[in-house]
Nucleic acid binder design. Sequence first.
DNA 1: TTGTATGCGTTATCAT
DNA 2: ATGATAACGCATACAA
Lengths: 348, 348
Amino acid sequence: MPQQPPTITDVAREAGVSKGLVSFALNDRPGVSAETRARILEVARELGWTPSLRARSLSTGRSFACGLVLGRSPDVIAADPFFHSFIAGLEDEFSMSGQVLVLAVATPGRQESETYRGLAVDKRVDGVIVTDLRAHDPRLELVDRLGLAAVTLGVPDAETPFSSVSVDDGAGIHAAVRHLSDLGHRRIAHIAGPDGMLHARTRRQAFESAAAEFGLVAASVETDFSAAEGAAATGALLDGDAPPTAIVYSNDHMAIAGLGVARRRGLSVPGDLSITGYDDTEIGRYVNPALTSVATDAREWGRVAARTLLGAIEGHDAVNVRLNEPTLTVRESTGPAPTDTRGDRRDR
Amino acid sequence: MPQQPPTITDVAREAGVSKGLVSFALNDRPGVSAETRARILEVARELGWTPSLRARSLSTGRSFACGLVLGRSPDVIAADPFFHSFIAGLEDEFSMSGQVLVLAVATPGRQESETYRGLAVDKRVDGVIVTDLRAHDPRLELVDRLGLAAVTLGVPDAETPFSSVSVDDGAGIHAAVRHLSDLGHRRIAHIAGPDGMLHARTRRQAFESAAAEFGLVAASVETDFSAAEGAAATGALLDGDAPPTAIVYSNDHMAIAGLGVARRRGLSVPGDLSITGYDDTEIGRYVNPALTSVATDAREWGRVAARTLLGAIEGHDAVNVRLNEPTLTVRESTGPAPTDTRGDRRDR
DNA sequence: TTGTATGCGTTATCAT
DNA sequence: ATGATAACGCATACAA
């Protein structure tokens, strides 16, 4: 007959105590004499007993799972290498503590709020990681009302009861602008993500303040982070009266699309136009010219976010963790500003 | 006081029956009179009772979750838009049946077999989707031994007790080769994925047989699907005695890297070299020239895979589902073969 | 056709 | 201080 795995009852019987006491011994709770505890643990070891996750889940109300809701448009998210590394980082921690990562995808047919609610029903997850923070993000109140623990990636623009883990996106953009300024560029532009997304806004603001700091003529264009809009924005900028000599993109994906646009117009990169990306994707290193880009340690971000969320689930106080600054890797897509006749006369 | 949600006991008491009967009525099991069943369901509706997932999970041994293990190297997978669309498709089905998707990532520090085992311990998932099938894939025996239900993406090269959902990768490659043949190309090459991966092998074999069918001189190079190896393989081919006039890549990522290599050598695409990708990524449409590519309906694949897996979990017989053929989208990266002096004399 | 007992780990309550 | 007991929520084998 198929040997059933041992249960707490087997251990209790073998050790000559009650089920409750076995549980107390296992969980290091007071009220068990050292001697009894040792005997119980020894019996458990002999029998090879480990408590059933499902039974624990029933009696504690915990699911031992954490949720990640992806809400961006498919095209944009699919190309974002951030998520795979980030998820690997989450798993580095979760797999060590017996947690599991539940992935949910919000689509046009399945609203984001519905997706969160679905995870909260029956407490399918103990907590969630909230990414791509938006202005006055309605998800934060929702998650709070649903009774889920949470950690946000980036600092929200309002008070929340949640912990946050963030990197200084602004520092990465600042480094890119300084690099371009050092190369002699005077008219630069930023192709930003949606201003309603906090990290996109942070990058835009950092771009504008860095441009001011270095005395540059600057313009920003808002996009949805997609290659399509990145290409369109690039075209619009190059069609302007005084086109920029350098463009700082808010992701590699748009930068590569921008590269295509520049080439179609016969512009040399970086001869006529310098380009910087963000994310430092693998493919960015193999296009021609190889992309100068800003990199964040996504895996470490995932590890820290997971640890922070687990702390929150265990009832720790909210904390705001700040990670190392992103770094700029200079490759071939940035070079000295062209020395043509057009001065830096106009803003737009 | 915080009103507790109603339990099966409340329903039983209110309906004047036992807990067991409520359970039978809810699950449409025989042995309950139509009249009693109706009364029980009515009471349940009035009380707003829904059975506790955790209690169900404990008593049935099901977890109401399915697992997806990602095992490819981070760089490759991150750039693969297939997965996001595929996952969205999985969720289309899972979210409708109260299932949840558990994502696990195998990394150099956490072997694939360990990852599967982690999902099987305590039956954290009822079944798994096995992607990127390999030759004599050891995961299939492992999954079987772990007692998990499973569905494979693609048809394994050995008998398994599992269902499969597949697309005819070969048809996509065949279409690409025919397209190139029609354009007059006679020396073509294929930059393939690892031959140990069944879909990569299928594509290579389809390439070779299509090349033979059209009387072309063909060469294949094996890579790991990464941009780095795609670039290296492209360089090696172009350095050969009789370089190909067209290259069929096994993914867009490598095709874009190959484009970079060609450009660095001053080759015009498609003037001197035609290029086709696979996956039809968004970014491929915005590089210059825009990529001719083969597309699969990944979301539909996900939906069908989810349905098939749920069937397997419920004990249905194994089935082998075949999806629609992939389609070739012609853009700018393919054109007439160059009419230079070199004949099609040599193979590789 | 319907009721009962059992299983799973945790914890509130009770008994030494 | 130390330990036992019962209840929780659901499904199901079995008894009636």
